[in-house]
């Protein structure tokens, strides 16, 4: 039960950071998302994101910050097993599911639906 509470609180707080970036610092949503992704990969590099996932579960894996974290993780895992070129081959290893699903279903959506006014 506690896991759900922390998922809610931590996920909500990350969204509040996004809202503050948009409202107070007047960034566009695209800038905000880019900033969050980059912070995710930096936190991952410092080894701080993994503990957050252990603590908050989906609260840390669902926000876009986890995209940066997963990219770093895929790259690092592959680099450890195959050397420095592994960074290139492994970077999409973990995020593949998310990106492919988004591309495939967005495409299907465009096939099946017309824009709503």
């Amino acid at each position: 039960m506690e896991a759900y509470l922390w998922a809610f609180v931590v996920g909500g707080l990350i969204c509040v950071i996004g809202q503050i970036l948009m409202d107070v610092f007047k960034y566009t949503p695209a800038h905000t998302m880019a900033i969050l992704v980059v912070s995710g990969s930096i936190l991952s590099g410092l080894g701080l994101y993994e503990p957050l996932i252990d603590f908050a579960g989906a609260g840390a894996t669902v926000p876009i910050t986890s995209f940066g974290n997963s990219l770093v993780h895929g790259a690092m895992a592959e680099a450890e097993s195959t050397g420095i070129l592994g960074i290139l081959t492994g970077i999409f290893e973990v995020t593949s599911a998310g990106i492919s699903a988004a591309i495939i279903f967005a495409f299907l959506g465009a096939l099946l639906f017309k824009p709503k006014g």
């Binding site: 969204c15 809202q19 905000t32 926000p63 824009p115």
Partner: peptide
């Protein structure tokens, strides 16, 4: 606002809306 933009659902939303809008 950011509550729907920051989670991964927002990422999918931007892709789907752009794809549908430009069909």
């Amino acid at each position: 606002g950011a509550g729907t933009a920051v989670p991964v659902t927002g990422f999918a939303n931007t892709m789907a809306s752009a794809a549908i809008e430009h069909r």
